[in-house]
């Protein structure tokens, strides 16, 4: 009943439905990249370099004569793989820590939450940059740097939900029936703190995509020749005056993806009881 109402509420929101369709299209693009990409992403054709968009190359070619459209298509794959990886990893870890902290309380919980407050107060991109500064640039290190900061949000939200759920009668009942703590956490607490976590995951996907692209743009993320939108923008910026297509298309893709996730997130937030959400 509650679920169908939330679903209807979500489907009534045109922006969220549009966001969902865009994401589905992008995911399909990423999955079918091998079949729909017109050219090889790494094929260097120097005599075709810096060509403006045409029928042959709908998004033009870059400074090495590579087809921009193909690189955009494979870039979708890079971006979605990385961002999903980050979000799955951070949400699982954060929820795990958050539930344990909220369920057992105590001094460890206290210290952990103060630490999280401190870290969340800090501009996350700078922390990620410092981590990259310590371990060096690269795809894997990007994932690591963003993840090391990213789980904090999930831990905080999961802990807040757990705190209220553990006081509920049905949890008391389960405890009285002799269920183990692990059983209660997994079958009672976890399902009940999922709704706000799902909203957070959606909104977080958008910001993770932005972070990945930012690091890529600064030359600290995926290294060439891996096709990645941020890195493509970084490569294209020197040709901004004469070959703006090198900068316009990758940026557009980043924006569309982030926008779509924000639309879905906003819609989900409105559909699920908004007062459950602790973070903006």
């Amino acid at each position: 009943m509650q679920k169908t109402r939330s679903l209807n509420e979500f489907l009534k929101n045109k922006a969220s439905v549009m966001g969902l369709i865009i994401i589905l299209l992008l995911v399909m693009t990423a999955a079918l990249a091998d079949y729909i990409s017109p050219y090889d992403t790494d094929k260097v054709v120097l005599k075709e370099k810096l060509k403006p968009p045409s029928w042959q190359h709908p998004m033009g070619t870059d400074q090495l004569g590579r087809d921009v459209l193909s690189r955009i298509i494979y870039g979708t794959r890079t971006t979605f793989e990385l961002s999903m990886l980050v979000v799955l990893f951070t949400s699982a870890f954060g929820v795990f820590i958050g539930i344990i902290a909220g369920y057992y309380r105590g001094i460890v919980d206290e210290i952990l939450m103060r630490l999280i407050d401190v870290l969340l107060a800090f501009p996350s991109i700078i922390l990620a940059l410092v981590i990259i500064g310590a371990i060096g640039p690269g795809v894997f290190n990007t994932v690591l740097a963003i993840s090391l900061v990213g789980w904090l949000f999930y831990a905080r939200v999961a802990r807040a939900s757990t705190l209220s759920i553990r006081e509920k009668e049905y949890v008391e009942g389960a405890r009285a029936m002799g269920c183990s703590d692990a059983y209660i956490c997994f079958f009672y607490v976890l399902p009940n703190c999922l709704p706000p976590i799902i909203v957070l995951m959606t909104l977080n996907l958008g910001s993770v995509i932005l972070s990945i692209a930012s690091l890529g743009y600064l030359g600290l993320g995926a290294q060439p020749p891996i096709p990645e939108w941020g890195t493509m923008l970084n490569d294209g910026k020197e040709y901004l005056r004469d070959c703006p297509w090198l900068s316009v298309f990758p940026g557009l893709m980043i924006m569309i993806s982030v926008l779509a996730f924000n639309f879905i997130g906003d819609g989900l937030r409105d559909a699920i009881d908004p007062r459950q959400l602790v973070i903006k």
Partner: peptide
């Protein structure tokens, strides 16, 4: 506003530079 939040700032920078400076 949603556009403003979703737009990567480095891309916005490049676009503004392209239009207003170049």
């Amino acid at each position: 506003a949603v556009l403003g939040i979703s737009m990567p700032n480095f891309w916005l920078a490049l676009l503004l530079m392209l239009v207003f400076s170049l």
